[in-house]
Nucleic acid binder design. Structure first.
Lengths: 151, 151
DNA sequence: CGCAAATGTGCATAATTATGCAGAGCGTGT
DNA sequence: ACACGCTCTGCATAATTATGCACATTTGCG
């Protein structure tokens, strides 16, 4: 039995993406779809993930919470190329560097994502400070960043 | 096994009201709450009602669809006293009489209710024409009207 | 680095929800 | 008034989802 934190993060991101594009009626389906893109998961984990993600089941399909809908996959696609890299500055602060003048838009995309581990962000011109509550939260954040912007 | 059409309407209205006020986690609870106010129903019926009403289950409680939230119970309370009565005018038209000058507000409350059997309404000064698709739909409408405004 | 506390998982299974069926109440047309 | 058809129900049960446990890893600390 594995406990790969990163795997969980990626799987949840995948779940959100899948639910955006398909009408999924049951967890078993979701498990199949996840397998198809390389994610290994059981109905148990999916059940827990869905609750954690605040996903709702309406009649015959799972629905993402309202806020999430606002964030189109393309949101990240657009700003992906602006991101130069990121590094931890202590256990609760992460500094992300971007192309000059694009920090604001990247920060906005990050805020819209609504990742729970993020307490707040401040964007300058080419730098974003991302505050997290703990080292653990920071790890989550980095998992997310890695998933969306590459290592 | 009974098939009291009116009972269904009233029960569904009750379900909506209950869900507005309480956080209900399972259908069995809902059955209990319904019993408490005199509605006789089984989990089977409740399951079907919830689907029909478009109710959604989020994590650990049932949630009403967004639109419904707008209509406060008090909405009907306010206009209840304006309604003088109503009669069918043919199988698909219902004429509702109100106090002079209040027809508009009553019609607005009706529209907000979003009852599926209602195709449209027109309000004059003290009269509202309510169009329904069929005799059957008209019966539904009358059930609703009876529930909210009395016989 | 070593140990205790957390976290995440799968498995097996309990808990909950959905549904096929058959019966009952009503409305409709003759 | 009678027959036919439709809708709504409950029951029994299938289908689906949630969760107690035990265990593998990881994280936090001294």
């Amino acid at each position: 039995m594995a406990a790969d934190l990163n795997a969980q993060t990626q799987r949840r991101d995948a779940i959100v993406r899948i639910l955006r594009q398909n009408a999924v009626a049951r967890q078993a389906e979701l498990v199949t779809l996840l397998h198809r893109e390389g994610h290994d998961a059981t109905q148990s984990s999916v059940s827990r993930d869905l609750r954690e993600l605040g996903v709702v089941k309406g009649g015959d399909r799972y629905l993402l919470p309202d806020g999430e809908d606002a964030l189109t996959p393309s949101h990240f696609e657009t700003v992906r190329s602006f991101v130069k890299g990121y590094r931890a500055a202590g256990p609760t602060l992460t500094v992300l560097r971007t192309s000059v003048g694009t920090a604001q838009s990247v920060a906005i995309a990050l805020d819209k994502a609504g990742w729970p581990e993020v307490i707040g962000t401040i964007a300058g011109d080419d730098t974003i400070f991302i505050a997290t509550e703990s080292a653990k939260a920071q790890r989550r954040l980095h998992d997310h960043l890695r998933t969306h912007f590459g290592r």
